[in-house]
Deep mutational scan, measured.
Amino acid sequence: RKEMTAACTPRRRIINLTSVLSLQEEINEQGHEVLREMLHNHSFVGCVNPQWALAQHQTKLYLLNTTKLSEELFYQILIYDFANFGVLRLSEPAPLFDLAMLALDSPESGWTEEDGPKEGLAEYIVEFLKKKAEMLADYFSLEIDEEGNLIGLPLLIDNYVPPLEGLPIFILRLATEVNWDEEKECFESLSKECAMFYSIRKQYISEESTLSGQQSEVPGSIPNSWKWTVEHIVYKALRSHILPPKHFTEDGNILQLANLPDLYKVFERC
């Protein structure tokens, strides 16, 4: 597991931080080997919608929660590849102030007048994250320049770009939802926020969305749709870069829909 690298990086740093090793061990302890084997050997059937997909393993048909699986995938990559990410360069710098204002204007932020003026909160978020810029760049390849612009994001899987519609809320939550006081809790909560931002979430995906850094293989055609990215990038990574937690067998994120021999018997009677 320590050699797990989802995106190509030129050289690998050895990380011996106790906090990170502890988080890696927790993933191992909570892992479910049968689910790992199923995901490793599954045959992708198709997307139901951005949140759900169908896959077959041996004779069984499964309904998989793409949102939760991708979130767990990105969390584990962030923990196992800690401080070893490439950088996704933004085509132009994104001012943190503008991103924070967009987030505060969104109902998702939960902002009320009692929280104070949005401009003041946005300025605080910019200054707060600028103070964390060195650590964010060093460990997470999340790059913020001296003017308070976001200029780079971590490359977690080759050819995958997170849904940038979720970027404003991500920046807001970096400042408000991460435990910045304790090292282990900081790395864990920061990785979880980043994983949620990178995950496939239906509120940020339309039929026209593209999450891939590449064009489709047909010359002159439109960019790959999110469905292509889910199948050929995300579920491909799920084959080798995730140890599913045991609770996925109990919380409805992986559901067995049918045993195909039983279905064949039904059709034979028709």
Results as ranks from 00 to 15, higher is better:
Q256Y: 15
F267R: 03
V20C: 12
P245A: 12
E29A: 09
L64T: 10
T18A: 06
L190W: 14
T5Y: 14
R13E: 13
T112A: 09
A6G: 13
R11G: 09
A94I: 11
P50V: 11
D145E: 05
I27S: 13
A100D: 00
L61R: 00
L23H: 15
L63D: 01
L17T: 05
C8H: 08
P10W: 14
T210C: 05
A53V: 08
P154M: 00
L63F: 09
V45P: 00
P245M: 14
V266T: 13
V20N: 07
E92T: 08
Q56D: 12
Y75T: 12
N16V: 14
N49H: 11
N16A: 14
P154V: 00
L255S: 03
C186G: 02
I14R: 10
A103G: 15
A122F: 00
Q30W: 15
E183C: 03
P244T: 12
R36E: 13
L153A: 01
N28S: 06
M38S: 10
I157D: 03
P10H: 13
E108R: 03
H247N: 03
F140W: 11
N149K: 03
E119W: 15
Q56S: 04
P93D: 03
K60R: 09
L54I: 03
H247M: 11
K246Q: 12
L23K: 11
P162H: 00
H232E: 09
L54N: 01
N159S: 08
Q56R: 04
L174G: 00
T9R: 08
G148C: 08
A175C: 15
W111T: 14
E134F: 03
T18C: 12
W111Q: 02
S109V: 15
S240N: 06
L88T: 07
V230I: 04
I125H: 01
L64Y: 09
A6T: 12
K132T: 01
L172Q: 01
M135A: 03
I14P: 06
K132G: 03
I157H: 08
Q76F: 02
H40N: 09
L153I: 05
L238E: 01
I27Y: 14
E217A: 10
F187T: 05
I27L: 12
V230W: 02
N159R: 05
V161I: 02
V234M: 11
C194Q: 05
T67I: 10
A55M: 11
K68Q: 10
E25I: 15
K60L: 11
S189M: 02
N84G: 08
P154L: 00
E165F: 04
L190F: 15
K184A: 09
S109T: 14
T229A: 08
E114D: 09
S240I: 10
F97K: 03
L190H: 00
K132F: 08
P107V: 09
F248V: 11
E37T: 11
E182C: 05
C194I: 13
E72N: 10
N28E: 13
F44A: 08
N253W: 04
N179M: 08
K118L: 15
E165S: 05
S216V: 10
E217P: 08
Y235S: 11
P245L: 14
H40G: 12
Q30G: 08
E26A: 10
S22C: 12
T249S: 05
S216P: 08
E119Y: 15
T59F: 12
N259W: 08
Y204S: 07
A103R: 00
A53I: 09
P107Q: 07
A103T: 01
H57F: 08
L88M: 08
M38F: 14
F128K: 02
R239D: 11
P245Y: 15
L102S: 09
I254G: 03
G220E: 09
K68I: 08
G213R: 08
L121W: 11
A53Q: 01
V218M: 07
F44R: 04
S221L: 11
I125M: 07
R12F: 13
I233S: 11
F170T: 01
S141F: 13
P107A: 07
K68Y: 10
E71N: 07
F82S: 02
Q76G: 13
Y80P: 02
E3C: 11
I157W: 08
L17S: 03
P93E: 07
S199Q: 04
N159G: 10
I254S: 10
F267V: 07
A7V: 07
H57L: 08
D251L: 08
I14A: 05
G110P: 01
C8S: 12
D138Y: 04
T112K: 02
S141H: 12
S141E: 14
P219K: 12
W52E: 11
K192D: 09
L164H: 06
Y198I: 00
P245G: 11
M135L: 04
I233Q: 09
F44H: 11
G116I: 15
I77G: 13
N149F: 11
E119D: 11
I144A: 01
M101P: 00
C8V: 11
L150F: 04
M38A: 07
E182A: 04
L155T: 06
Y198Q: 02
E127M: 12
I233G: 14
K130A: 15
T112N: 09
P245T: 13
I205V: 07
V126L: 03
L243P: 14
L260D: 07
G148R: 02
E183H: 04
N49V: 11
I233M: 14
I157Y: 07
T18H: 12
P10V: 12
P261M: 10
M4K: 06
Y204N: 07
V234D: 00
N253P: 06
A7F: 15
I254R: 02
D115K: 01
D98A: 05
Q214H: 07
N149D: 13
H232L: 14
Q214L: 11
W228F: 08
I144K: 01
L90S: 01
L17F: 14
P244Q: 14
Q51G: 07
